[in-house]
Amino acid sequence: MIEAINLTKRYGNLTVLDEISETIHEGERIVIIGPSGSGKSTFLRCLNCMEDPTSGSIMFEGVDLTDMKVDINYHRQRMGMVFQQFNLFNNKTVLQNITLAPLHIGLKGVRDREKRAQIKADIEANAHKLLQRIGLDDWADKYPSTLSGGQKQRVAIVRALAMNPKVILFDEPTSALDPEMVGEVLDLIKQLAEEGMTMVIVTHEMGFAREVASRVFFMDGGKIMEQGTPEDVFERPQCPRLKEFLSKVL
C-alpha cells in the first residue's frame, strides 16, 4: 500500500535517510526501532510528506506523493498521524478537535442547508461514538489543556481515526507520557491492531513492539539494517549493531 523507493533525506551534508526502498502492505503492523538519530521519525514523517524527501519517492495506493502536482492534502486525509507531543488543537474543544477536519472536508461544496445539517450531525455522532469508545465522551466540550497526557494522546488517536484512514502513522506515541499513562495509550493502539488497522509505529517500548508488530524494522544510520518478525528480530538478531542495541534496551 505504501512503497518507499530510494527514499533519501539530507539536511545539508548530513544524510538522515540513505536510499531506503521498502514496501508496506495492507494490514501490516510495522514497528520501527533503533537508536536516537537513526532516522526513524524522519522515515515516518516522509511517508506522508510532512518532511519532503531530498530524492526518491513515496507511492501510496499507486500515487507518487512526492510529485508536486499531487493533491497532498487529499492523500493525507487517508493517512492518520499521531505525534509524540499529541498536538491537539489548543483553541478547539475535544469534540471540535475530532470533527474539524471531517466537517471541513465533508461540507466543502455542499450548499443545501438541510444536507449540511445532516452531514454535521452524522460527523458529530461519529465523534461522540469514538469518544465513548475511549471513555472520554464527558470531556467532549472541554479544552485539551484540561486533559492529562494519556487522555490527550487517546483523543489524538481518535482524531486520526475519525478520518477513516487507510493507515495510521505513530511517531513515538508514548515518549512524552508519564509512565503510568503509557498503558492506556498502548492498549488503544493494540485494539486498533486487532481490528486490522494498518499502522507504522516508531517506538522505544520494546515489549509493546514485540507484542503488536507483524514486522519490525531496525534502523541505524539512515538505513533499515535488519527486519523481520518480532521473534526473528528480538530472539535471533543477525547484525552486530542490532545485537548491541538490544543488549542496551532489553
Binding site: 510532512m50 487517508r78 498521524m81 505525534f83 498536538n87 477536519a101 472536508i105 482524531r159 486520526a160
Partner: peptide
C-alpha cells in the same frame, strides 16, 4: 506542532 497536526489531517 499545531500546523503539523492540521496538515496531517489533510487541511
Amino acid at each position: 506542532g499545531q500546523m503539523e497536526a492540521g496538515r496531517a489531517v489533510g487541511l
